[in-house]
Design a binder for these strands. Structure first.
Length: 858
RNA sequence: GGGUGCUUAGCUCAGUGGUAGAGCGUCUCGUUUACACCGAGAAUGUCGGGGGUUCGAAACCCUCAGCGCCCA
């Protein structure tokens, strides 16, 4: 049967074929009518413009691990894939394409442009989904969704109307984040704050007694000032509150107002109030009836001030205004560079301009409260729990959400305006009166992706999918989008689904960083391309590395060397399975009864049983890293380095049937356990070993408690100690590993039965000998007949090192046992353990001392 | 400024009260018929500093220092 496995493992030879096999067999297709319990995950939809990056690879590896494990556990698993239409990002891509022909979207017109975007999507969009297949993601392709699909659109319009009717959507004139390049409003989360180098200028307003100095980073907006504000308790300005000062450049009188919002310790303690161009100023203006003076157009160009600055870009104007003020002697102080946080468009990086405009908003307070309560009441669990405070911090302090975008690519706002300013929301299947016109804007992308957990199941129709798979079992995503997407999913789902949140658990993982823990970025040149590494090392190696690094909620560093290490692990599995099969490992019939097995067989079954229960419980707790670590060491250390080695003597003999069966069982179970993390290689090995159809639909291992055998574990631990010590002796003595040494075991009890197994591993020739050297471990003595004399210096060094270690251990134990407090208060088991340690070290010291004394003088 | 983490072997990180661990790297030896993508052996840590609690602290508390992230 081993002929079925190539002599070396080549991932590229099996991956694509196996994936195709799984998809064709329909293993990933969920059945809503199934009687099995449901386990569902919706894939956080990647942008249609995106390519697979290492973060996706991590995210999907973890989701696939869970999906595959649950499938093996007998759940009806649905992992639903799809993509996000990514409004601004996608529109930008297509606009850029048009620009190469010197065209803008306006040259095409709205309908033509949207058609163009769809064309682009058909040709180049969604490359990422093909790349997912490389990873082995077990998603249900028959249910692939796109946030701009008609069904999604139906959901979006229905929910918009429902929210509007509930008073949760309103239209208002507010200061919003405006991108002067994308020419659209943005929500708070689409703005990235960076520390920029700017300037901080103090300008004197007014004349003589009636003057006040304001400090600002945005002098160019002063022509839009409607007031100057001070803190009500500020003694410097108290007498001026209620009076007016002259606003330079435009020569307008503006009032001095008092507002708590002003920080008297900041700058001069007096700030200009530019109601139409700053969110804080806007708030103050509303409180004090300060007029809104608009001085800039949508492109960020000065407009309507009636000064020479009209027509200048905002940054040009900033310089020019300060220059003019300086010539007028009105600049009191200047500070450059002044480092402060400035908002940038997350899509094009241009500086955001706060802009007064009429937009649609979601009133988030009641939604956010329901979302917070769902977690507080335990309806939804956040894993790891340490990230809960971050979640609460966010949902408890949320601003209303601006959802209208001045774009063409997206779900059009289902609002129509009548000739006399009537406003109606047109739901699915409804039509607006003929003389009405639709709002030209589209909805924020998050408004549709926020519905992903139920719109994908066919809501608002009462579908079988919805009934079976909502709420989803777990959401797996990076903590970096907790506030972007997760919170929106929570809010919209909980509202739409009558209080049932979209998932039972939110499992948050960290970011993948470079080998030094630095953020990956194009400019640093430290970006790891998952495709490149899958080509080089195989998908399983990449997946194993990522899963092994995935400690809950924390970032992980990733280096090519470590992926190489996982590839080595895959190769190890391959070779071990090949070797096992060459030796007749099989799964025929029942496992032999425990009392008929050797201690070595019983030991590996015991270790297997422990590994199964630990790995299972760790995976259920989303402890991927620790689960992988256990599997790695069970496979490499216990199975390969010890069990296979210790079994070689048995395989060389005539009574190997039971061991062949045990080995077959252990491999069978191990491959099942590893399958969720390393689906390809395990499938190949397991189907070869068992001849069964597929590991994808095989059963998840269940620990057999009866196999746990502490006595055998202790015995094998003793054997390991003996073997290690003899190896060290051989090594210190410079005896070639290939050289067989005549030797004899002097041992009593169970350990004596395994002399030949140990001798095989150690390359000792057992027989009656005249000993010329020995190694003693506890009560076991291994004597050797070395033809020449031994290297006394090396042997003395070895023994002295052991002696020193034993003396040190003995002292630590003595100190504890002589400590009255310890004896009085430490639990009995601990005291017992220390006593045993003392006894062991004492005999060790005696024995080693005697051995040292018996050594010939150098 | 508000919040929240982190500091353990050369690097990246596990380790929630009982003799300090892993992977990668390093050194020595090795063509032992699964595997050199391997095997065997070895070296390496006042667990950031200081104080405290405790019979016992890498772990719990206080404090200082340094680094990071999120939000403003």
């Amino acid at each position: 049967m081993s002929g079925d496995l190539a002599s070396s493992f080549s991932p590229a030879d099996i991956e694509a074929t196996l994936y195709q096999k799984w998809v064709s067999a329909g293993y990933f297709t969920a059945d809503a009518a199934s009687s099995k319990p449901a386990f569902s995950i919706v894939l956080p939809p990647p942008n249609v413009t995106g390519v697979l990056h290492i973060g996706h690879a991590l995210d999907q590896t973890l989701q696939d691990c869970l999906s595959r494990m649950k499938r093996m556990k007998g759940f009806e698993v649905l992992w639903l894939p799809g993509m996000d239409h990514a409004g601004i990002a996608t529109q930008n891509v297509v606009e850029k394409q048009l620009a190469t022909d010197g065209k803008s979207r306006h040259d095409l017109g709205r309908d033509e442009f949207v058609k163009k975007v769809w064309e682009w999507k058909g040709e180049s969009g969604g490359a990422i989904l093909e790349q997912m297949k490389r990873l082995g993601s077990s998603v249900d392709w028959s249910r692939e969704r796109f946030t701009m699909d008609e069904a999604m659109s139906n959901s979006v319009v229905t929910l918009f109307k429902k929210m509007h009717d509930a008073g949760l959507i309103y239209r208002a004139e507010r200061i919003i984040n405006w991108c002067p390049r994308c020419l659209t409003a943005l929500s708070d989360i689409e703005v990235e704050h960076q520390d920029d180098s700017g300037e901080f200028v103090s300008v004197r307003y007014g004349e003589g007694e009636q003057s006040i100095t304001v400090a600002t980073t945005r002098p160019e907006t002063m022509m839009g000032d409607g007031a100057v504000a001070v803190h009500p308790d500020d003694p410097r300005y108290k007498h001026m509150v209620g009076t007016s000062v002259l606003l330079p450049l435009v020569n307008r009188m503006i009032p001095i107002i008092a507002d708590e919002l002003v920080d008297p310790d900041f700058g001069t303690g007096a700030v200009k109030v530019t109601a139409a161009h700053d969110p804080n100023d806007f708030e103050m203006a509303v409180r004090h009836n300060v007029p809104f003076v608009v001085i800039m157009n949508e492109h960020g160009v000065m407009d309507g001030t009636g000064t020479e600055f009209d027509g200048m870009d905002r940054f040009e104007a900033r310089v020019a205004v300060v220059e003019k003020l300086r010539s007028m002697g009105r600049i009191v102080a200047e500070k450059r560079p002044y480092i402060h946080a400035v908002g940038h468009c997350s899509r094009c990086e241009i500086t955001i301009e706060p802009r007064l405009s009429k937009q649609w908003f979601v009133k988030v307070a009641p939604l956010a409260k329901a979302s917070a309560d769902a977690v507080r009441n335990g309806l939804v669990t956040i894993e790891p729990k340490e990230l809960e405070p971050r979640y609460f911090d966010w949902v408890d302090n949320m601003h209303d959400w601006c959802i209208s975008r001045q774009l063409w690519w997206g779900h059009r706002i289902p609002v129509w305006y009548g000739p006399n300013d009537e406003v109606i929301v047109v739901g699915p299947g409804e039509t607006a009166p003929p003389d009405y016109t639709q709002d030209p804007d589209v909805l924020d992308t998050w408004f549709s992706s926020g519905q992903w957990a139920f719109s994908t199941f066919g809501w608002p129709e009462k579908t079988a999918d919805l009934a079976k798979f909502y709420p989803t079992s777990v959401l797996v995503t990076g903590y970096d989008i907790l506030f972007f997407w997760v919170v929106r999913m929570m809010m919209m789902s909980t509202f739409a689904m009558d209080g049932v949140p979209p998932f039972k658990t939110i499992m948050l993982h960290g970011l993948v960083r470079d080998q030094f823990g630095k953020k990956m970025s194009k400019s640093r040149g430290n970006v790891i391309d998952p495709i490149e590494f899958m080509d080089k090392y195989g998908a399983d190696a990449l997946r194993f590395t990522l899963a092994r690094g995935a400690n809950p909620g924390t970032d992980q560093a990733l280096a090519e060397d470590w992926i190489g290490g996982s590839r080595n692990f895959a190769t190890k599995l391959w070779n071990a399975t090949r070797f096992a099969m060459m030796n007749g490992a099989n799964i025929e019939g029942e496992l032999p009864a425990a009392d008929s097995l050797s201690a070595i067989d019983k030991w590996i079954l015991s270790r297997l049983s422990e590994t199964i229960s630990e790995v299972d419980s760790l995976l259920e707790k989303y402890e991927f890293a620790r689960a992988c670590e256990l599997l790695y060491h069970f496979a490499w250390d216990d199975l390969c380095d010890w069990y296979l080695e210790l079994s070689k003597e048995t395989f060389a003999g005539t009574d190997a049937d039971k061991t062949k069966r045990v080995l077959g069982h252990v491999l069978d179970q191990l491959l099942r356990l590893l399958h969720p993390v390393m689906p390809f290689i395990t499938e190949q090995l397991w189907t070869t070993l068992t001849g069964a159809e597929s590991l994808v639909i095989a059963q998840w291992p269940v620990a057999n408690a009866a196999h746990v055998d502490k006595a055998s574990e202790k015995l094998v631990a003793e054997m390991q100690e003996i073997i290690t010590d003899v190896r060290r002796f051989r090594n210190d003595q410079g005896i070639k590993t290939s050289l067989k040494i005549p030797a004899r075991f002097v041992a009593n009890g169970a350990i004596a039965d395994y002399s030949s197994a140990m001798a095989f591993v150690l390359r000792l020739e057992l027989g009656e000998i005249t000993p010329s050297a020995k190694v003693e471990i506890g009560s076991v003595k291994v004597e050797f007949d070395l033809t020449g004399s031994i290297d006394v210096v090396a042997e003395r060094a070895r023994l002295e090192k052991d002696l020193a270690a034993a003396i040190k251990d003995k002292q630590t134990a003595e100190v504890k046992l002589n400590n009255d407090g310890f004896m009085a208060k430490a639990p009995e088991s601990v005291v017992l353990e220390i006593r045993e340690r003392l006894a062991k070290t004492s005999t060790d010291i005696e024995r080693i001392t005697a051995q040292l004394g018996a050594l010939p003088k150098a």
